[in-house]
């Protein structure tokens, strides 16, 4: 069980607030080549003769059954049952980079000692009653946190609405 961090592209403007909050929370040091655990970017395209931008903020997906956890030989990576986040124990990492090979989203990175660095969903903050730093900071409501139950329910409601719309009553 646990929670999901949701991203709503319809509200994002690539303002980087989430990235700065992540850097502040995790003491990220760009002068050592480090970057936030959340990547912000915009992707431009032309639709119907008009320039259109997609604004995106992407981080660890905290997969339900993650490949990175499966391949980790030392148990450094694991799912945190209470929060649902994919967390890691820095001290056990041997820098084998199996997780980077396995992750379909290219999330794992390594510090200058070769040890894993990635978003841990701010799981300690969540347990202490705080919000994940990026979610807490997002000024425009593009990032939110919901329980898996609530998310499943909302998906179901959305699908029902689509079906009703398609097939009527």
């Amino acid at each position: 069980m646990g929670d999901l961090i949701l991203f709503g592209p319809e509200r994002c403007v690539a303002c980087y607030a989430c990235a700065v909050a992540c850097m502040d929370q995790n003491d990220v040091d760009p002068s050592r080549g480090e970057s936030a655990f959340r990547a912000v970017f915009e992707r431009e395209s032309v639709r119907g003769g008009q320039a259109v931008c997609d604004y995106l903020s992407v981080s660890c997906m905290h997969c339900e059954d993650p490949y990175c956890v499966k391949v980790c030989p030392t148990g450094c990576l694991r799912k945190d049952q209470e929060t649902g986040m994919t967390v890691y124990d820095h001290s056990v990492c041997i820098g084998c980079r199996s997780c980077a090979q396995a992750c379909p989203f290219g999330v794992p990175r390594y510090n200058d000692e070769g040890r894993l660095l990635k978003c841990d969903g701010c799981h300690t903050r969540l347990k202490a009653g705080y919000e994940a730093a990026c979610v807490r900071a997002c000024p425009h409501g593009a990032l939110s946190r919901v329980s898996k139950e609530a998310f499943a329910l909302s998906l179901r409601r959305k699908n029902e609405a689509i079906m009703l719309n398609l097939y009527g009553r």
Partner: peptide, 24 residues
């Protein structure tokens, strides 16, 4: 060691911009 917007503040109610978040 860190900053956040003040919840319930009459002006910004917990939210800071990108620059304010980099205050440290």
């Amino acid at each position: 060691i860190k900053v956040e917007g003040t919840p319930g503040h009459p002006h910004n109610n917990g939210k800071l911009c990108t620059k304010g978040l980099a205050s440290r």
